[in-house]
């Protein structure tokens, strides 16, 4: 890492100050050096270490770091449970993001209409954000338990959803070792997750809506656009960057989700609610398959990186301009 303090300084600075300034630049770097070292070790160093474990034969109580190539990864891609995890993650992510976006935007548009008691409503939708996924999981586990909770009311309407105990996969096309489709049980988890996270997209959209100058809407109205057109043609395009941000933040939460599912359903029968985070935890810390667990972790990291790295690079550029 080369250290090249920027040389352009204020024109009026005296030579003595100039000298101290260059010393200060060194000090500035020293200020952040501990953090850089910590991140270098704890993030990048440990990821490399995990990567190494994922290529090793360490699948028992005793560390065995002999190199086995991609064996652990090959095992996973032929593994029923991991295939089911990929399916569940895919549909959980899609459903979760869609619901959070639509509900959040809908609520934000409503709350932006100079509603009386806006702050009360806003707080009702936002407060779950302050809760832990564990609390959410514990509570929704009870509400959506087929023999307790909301079903007591739904029974009276003749409905008997199985919620997270359902084992059906719709439509359930054979694919690899698993049935491909939306696992019904995951919907229960999506409900809980949406309940918790909608506040985030609501707050983002609300901030975005408030930043759109009223003149823009007025101009469109004068051009003869009705309210719906004003929204689709003027406001929504303005909200695009926010939508992208929300999608990316929600996607990375969803791809690494662990605590909500661990607290609410566990892997589920036939692994209908299992996700890589839970599998990694169980196989590593309960089954002692460290190599397999590390491989799952690396795959999770790659999935997240696909979303995050372009986002980070683009916001770095955005920050500079």
């Amino acid at each position: 890492m080369t250290l090249q303090p920027e040389t352009k300084t204020h024109p009026t600075i005296k030579p003595k100050t100039k000298k101290r300034l260059s010393k200060d630049r060194w000090l500035a770097f020293l200020f952040i050096l501990p953090s850089i070292i910590l991140i270098a070790i704890f993030v990048y160093g440990f990821i490399a270490w995990t990567g190494y474990v994922s290529l090793s034969n360490w699948n028992s109580l005793v560390p065995d770091l002999s190199f086995v190539g991609l064996k652990n990864y090959l095992f996973l891609f032929h593994d029923f449970r991991f295939q089911a995890d990929l399916r569940n993650t895919l549909f959980f992510t899609i459903l979760f993001i869609l619901c959070v976006l639509i509900l959040g935007l809908f609520l934000a548009v409503l709350l932006d209409r100079k509603i009386r008691g806006e702050s009360v409503f806003r707080n009702i939708f936002l407060f779950p954000m302050a809760l832990s996924f564990i609390v959410t999981g514990v509570v929704w586990q009870w509400i959506l338990n087929p023999s307790t909770g909301v079903n007591l009311i739904l029974h009276k309407l003749g409905l008997k959803p199985m919620w997270y105990t359902s084992v059906s996969v719709i439509p359930g096309v054979e694919w690899g070792k698993i049935q491909f489709g939306i696992p019904v049980a995951i919907i229960a988890v999506v409900i809980a997750a949406v309940w918790q996270m909608t506040g985030f997209s609501l707050a983002m959209y609300l901030a975005g809506l408030r930043a759109i100058p009223e003149e823009l809407r007025e101009a469109a109205r004068i051009d003869g656009a009705n309210e719906f057109q004003v929204f689709t043609k003027v406001i929504f395009p303005q909200l695009m960057p926010i939508t992208v941000s929300v999608i990316i933040i929600m996607a990375h939460i969803s791809l690494k989700i662990f605590d909500l599912i661990y607290a609410m359903t566990g892997p589920g029968a036939n692994f209908v609610t299992d996700v890589p985070g839970v599998y990694m935890y169980e196989t590593t810390f309960r089954g002692n398959f460290y190599g397999n667990g590390a491989a799952i972790a690396i795959i999770m990291l790659l999935f997240v990186a696909i979303f995050i790295v372009p986002y980070l690079i683009s916001s770095r550029k955005g920050g500079e301009s």
Partner: peptide
Amino acid sequence: TAVLFGMFIPYQSILIP
């Protein structure tokens, strides 16, 4: 940017070490 990346990683990927 490199530091920020640390915010998004799944912590499973650093847990074993």
